[in-house]
Simulated scan of single mutants.
Amino acid sequence: MNRDHDPYSSHAQAADGAEPRLIDHLIELRARLLRAVAGLILVFVILLPFAADIYAVLAQPLLGSLPESGRLVAVDPAGGFFVPVKLAFFSALLLTMPWLLYQAWAFVAPGLYHREKRLAMPLLVSAVALFYTGCAFAFFLVLPSVFGFLARFTPEVVAMTPDIAKYLDFVLVIFLAFGASFELPVALVILVLLGWVTPQQLRESRGYAIVGVFVVAAIITPPDVVSQLMLAIPMCILYELGIVASRWLKPREDAGTTPGQTPTA
């Protein structure tokens, strides 16, 4: 039998060609992961000597609502050490988010079409910027308002001495909630680009979206009206911005498409 026309031989050659490509992808993935982790560890080590100072800054929204003699306490004997270290790690994670996302982008970008690359990069940058904006909004506006509201309703016979670990967990949850909620415009644009919804459908569902926003805000925020409103109102505004952005991008996507023809890469 002629080996040049042997189907089994061609399949073996294809398998031999696929295996090196798979190994190359795994090597690239390993390199990207190592770079991402190395960057995170480097920033964490740099921030570690300033962990106590970072916690002092993070505690300002609460301390501003306490009496002059008010202070935080450490219920756990080791909490005074481990809590600032935990905060330094999450601070490093927050600061290196662009670097981590860049490594993920550099790994998947070679497999994307030009049109996908052109859309993915602005969406990625917008997502990072909106997450940072949500965290800043929570720190400078939401937390002082929430703690001021809670302090006014605390009886005078009760001394507010929050635990440093529970306070950190509370603040991290607030940061995550507001940072993720501010991603709403990016999520709407992605849904429109995927063809799951249209800008017209988003406009028609505005009433249901507002009700859903207030329900979500009531679930993920502390049990006070101030924080719920301070999350729900920006989300309603961001919903409108998502509609505007999707209307702006969708015609650009459809501009090069003729009836019955899908966009080319």
Results as ranks from 00 to 15, higher is better:
residue 1 M to S: 12
residue 1 M to H: 10
residue 5 H to Q: 14
residue 9 S to L: 14
residue 11 H to M: 03
residue 14 A to W: 03
residue 17 G to Y: 08
residue 18 A to G: 10
residue 19 E to Q: 00
residue 19 E to H: 00
residue 22 L to V: 09
residue 24 D to P: 00
residue 28 E to Q: 12
residue 30 R to N: 14
residue 30 R to T: 15
residue 31 A to N: 08
residue 34 L to I: 13
residue 34 L to V: 15
residue 36 A to V: 07
residue 36 A to F: 09
residue 37 V to G: 15
residue 40 L to T: 02
residue 41 I to Q: 02
residue 42 L to D: 01
residue 42 L to Y: 00
residue 44 F to Q: 02
residue 45 V to G: 08
residue 54 I to A: 12
residue 55 Y to Q: 13
residue 56 A to I: 06
residue 57 V to G: 11
residue 58 L to M: 15
residue 61 P to F: 09
residue 63 L to V: 15
residue 63 L to A: 15
residue 64 G to A: 15
residue 65 S to P: 04
residue 66 L to C: 11
residue 72 L to A: 02
residue 73 V to P: 06
residue 74 A to C: 02
residue 84 P to F: 03
residue 84 P to N: 04
residue 84 P to K: 01
residue 85 V to C: 07
residue 87 L to M: 03
residue 87 L to E: 03
residue 88 A to K: 11
residue 89 F to T: 14
residue 91 S to N: 11
residue 92 A to R: 05
residue 93 L to E: 00
residue 97 M to A: 10
residue 102 Y to H: 13
residue 103 Q to W: 05
residue 105 W to F: 04
residue 107 F to I: 05
residue 110 P to N: 00
residue 110 P to G: 00
residue 112 L to T: 03
residue 113 Y to N: 05
residue 113 Y to F: 02
residue 114 H to N: 11
residue 116 E to P: 00
residue 122 P to M: 06
residue 123 L to E: 04
residue 123 L to M: 09
residue 123 L to Y: 03
residue 124 L to I: 08
residue 124 L to V: 08
residue 127 A to I: 05
residue 129 A to V: 11
residue 134 G to S: 06
residue 134 G to M: 03
residue 134 G to Y: 04
residue 137 F to H: 03
residue 139 F to W: 11
residue 140 F to L: 10
residue 142 V to D: 03
residue 147 F to T: 07
residue 148 G to R: 11
residue 148 G to T: 12
residue 149 F to R: 08
residue 149 F to M: 09
residue 149 F to A: 09
residue 152 R to Q: 01
residue 152 R to T: 00
residue 153 F to P: 07
residue 154 T to L: 09
residue 154 T to R: 07
residue 155 P to Y: 09
residue 156 E to L: 01
residue 157 V to Q: 06
residue 158 V to M: 08
residue 162 P to V: 02
residue 162 P to H: 02
residue 167 Y to Q: 07
residue 169 D to V: 15
residue 173 V to I: 13
residue 174 I to A: 03
residue 178 F to L: 03
residue 181 S to A: 12
residue 187 A to T: 09
residue 190 I to Q: 00
residue 193 L to A: 08
residue 200 Q to V: 11
residue 201 Q to M: 10
residue 202 L to D: 12
residue 203 R to P: 08
residue 206 R to V: 08
residue 208 Y to P: 13
residue 209 A to Q: 05
residue 216 V to Y: 14
residue 218 A to K: 10
residue 218 A to P: 06
residue 220 I to R: 00
residue 222 P to H: 13
residue 230 M to C: 10
residue 235 M to A: 14
residue 237 I to H: 10
residue 244 V to F: 09
residue 246 S to I: 04
residue 246 S to E: 02
residue 248 W to M: 03
residue 250 K to V: 12
residue 253 E to C: 06
residue 255 A to M: 13
residue 256 G to L: 08
residue 256 G to A: 08
residue 256 G to T: 07
residue 257 T to E: 14
residue 259 P to F: 09
residue 259 P to K: 09
